[in-house]
């Protein structure tokens, strides 16, 4: 048994300098980069509402939330760099479409209620996915996830509170909430990835203890958590098959449109092109700042 296999078998963490199979390193870099890109692209759908927030309080909250997403992206790029990846290179891969990000951020945010629903459902689904990753086998990734999970809890609660406020408002405001729930429910279920029998990389990730639970297991957990929250809020989840199954002690639910997930992942979602164009523009617009800061630093400390 190799040192790596022993470490995994003993449920200890793999650390950056350790020997590890090349496939493990590649899988880790891909997963962490994809996760980091999701956080960074995830700033866009909600960021669009910062200037249009209905009050100073909501604006300050949203600003803090979007800043957190940036922070989460940076914790994760930091973890990827411990494996020899280069941050600038990862950003280029994202912009050139060679690395992916979560399909969820390719949907548009049509009303301010979307900000609340993203906090409640999208961040709720992210928490379900991420809590087990705090015990992921790669140390820097697991540690980044611990920080991220602590902060995600604020994200989910501010979203739910926003929705409660709107549900206590006018009929038009309640309609906005229901409309947003109708649009985000199914894409949120898709965040857990394809069903287990169609998820080719899952088995290896479970064996390496990168992943601790299957996609379907986490999706079920999310549905079970969300139903009573929807009831408390007074909204209807848009799934006629949703029903408590006393035998399983879980909610039964309908099948997400997996063809839609495939389309969105492969670049054909409502906002894919817009998200990448925006990221590319931010990178281009920031180039002179990066160059100027570097030139200034070089001037102050002459190279030895």
């Amino acid at each position: 048994m190799s040192t790596f296999e022993e470490t995994i078998a003993r449920d200890q963490r793999v650390e950056p300098g350790d020997e590890m199979p090349e496939a493990y390193r590649k899988t880790m870099i891909r997963q962490i980069a994809q996760h980091a890109h999701s956080e960074i692209i995830g700033m866009q759908p909600e960021g669009e509402w910062i200037t249009r927030a209905p009050s100073l309080r909501r604006k300050a909250i949203l600003l803090a939330k979007v800043q957190d997403e940036a922070g989460h992206g940076l914790y994760l790029y930091s973890a990827a760099e411990t494996l020899g990846a280069d941050r600038g290179d990862l950003t280029r891969r994202l912009i050139e479409g060679r690395q992916k990000y979560s399909s969820i951020f390719n949907y548009p945010t049509l009303s301010f209620a979307d900000v609340g629903v993203i906090g409640w459902l999208v961040d709720g689904a992210a928490i379900c996915n991420q809590v087990p990753l705090c015990r992921s086998s790669f140390g820097p990734y697991a540690r980044a996830m611990i920080r991220i999970c602590k902060e995600e809890s604020f994200h989910q609660r501010q979203g739910y509170e926003l929705l409660m406020t709107m549900m206590g408002g006018t009929p038009a405001q309640r309609d906005m909430v229901q409309d947003a729930v109708n649009r985000w429910w199914w894409p949120s279920l898709m965040m857990f990835g394809p069903p287990d029998d169609a998820s080719p990389n899952s088995a290896q990730s479970m064996a390496w203890k990168i992943k601790r639970h299957s996609n379907d297991e986490l999706r079920q957990r999310f549905v079970d958590m969300s139903v009573p929250q929807a009831e408390a809020l007074g909204v209807t989840l848009p799934d006629p098959e949703l029903a408590w199954n006393a035998g399983r002690e879980h909610y039964d639910f309908g099948t997400p449109d997996w063809d839609e997930l495939k389309r969105v992942i492969s670049g054909d979602g409502p906002c894919n092109a817009e998200r990448i164009a925006r990221r590319r523009q931010a990178d281009d617009d920031g180039a002179w700042v990066r160059e100027a800061a570097q030139a200034f630093a070089a001037k102050r400390v002459p190279a030895p």
């Binding site: 940076l74 914790y75 930091s78 973890a79 760099e81 411990t82 941050r87 820097p140 540690r143 980044a144 990066r290 800061a293 570097q294 200034f296 630093a297 102050r300 400390v301």
Partner: peptide, 11 residues
Amino acid sequence: VGSLRAADHEM
């Protein structure tokens, strides 16, 4: 706690 990119120590 982690790492970051910056042009110099102050940044």
